[in-house]
């Protein structure tokens, strides 16, 4: 889907911008292992960054290190979320947590569902206050078409930002 997001932005069908993020909220992104390293390679990670920067503002994007194909797994994959080794899974995720901490980001964008669940749990377990969001949420937020009940994963700072019909 990232390909289509990028294409839509380039073709002017998704007229995204980062004006909604005047406060300069920082975002980072978790490259999904399966999509980037295992399947399509770095070009899709670059497309992902193109979309993210267009939506949140280039200056508000902070990359993790290492990243793209060299990124660390968060621990949500391989069935780890569905097996009984919870304590080990949370230990596994510490490397990811340290990476996120170093970015200072308030939001982690996760194109992968398993990453989304795992990183949210890491934040909860280790007492961090960053939020974990899907890319579609931010694209629609930027476009001013994200309804109130579609903001489940946004923090209070963005619950009322750019609501449909309420922006200029």
């Amino acid at each position: 889907m990232i390909e289509f997001y990028a294409k839509g932005i380039r073709e002017g069908k998704l007229k995204v911008n980062s004006k909604w993020n005047e406060a300069g909220i920082k975002f980072t992104v978790q490259d999904p292992c399966k999509l980037v390293r295992q399947s399509l390679g770095d070009w899709i990670a670059d497309e992902l960054r193109f979309v993210v920067k267009a939506v949140v503002g280039e200056e508000n994007f902070v990359d993790m290190v290492p990243n793209k194909s060299n990124n660390y797994c968060c621990g949500g994959g391989g069935g780890f979320l569905q097996n009984p080794y919870v304590e080990e899974r949370l230990k596994f995720g510490r490397l990811k947590l340290e990476q996120i901490d170093r970015t200072g980001a308030k939001y982690v964008i996760t194109p992968c569902h398993n990453c989304h669940s795992q990183i949210m749990e890491l934040a909860r377990h280790y007492g961090r206050d960053f939020k974990v969001v899907h890319l579609w949420t931010l694209i629609c937020l930027s476009l001013g078409i994200l309804a109130e009940n579609e903001r489940l994963y946004l923090g209070d700072d963005l619950k009322e930002c750019n609501l449909p019909g309420k922006h200029a």
Partner: peptide, 16 residues
């Protein structure tokens, strides 16, 4: 070893 269920097969190892 239950470790095989703790490895996510993320392929970072073979990549590196």
């Amino acid at each position: 070893t239950p470790w095989v269920w703790m490895c996510t097969q993320c392929q970072r190892c073979i990549y590196a």
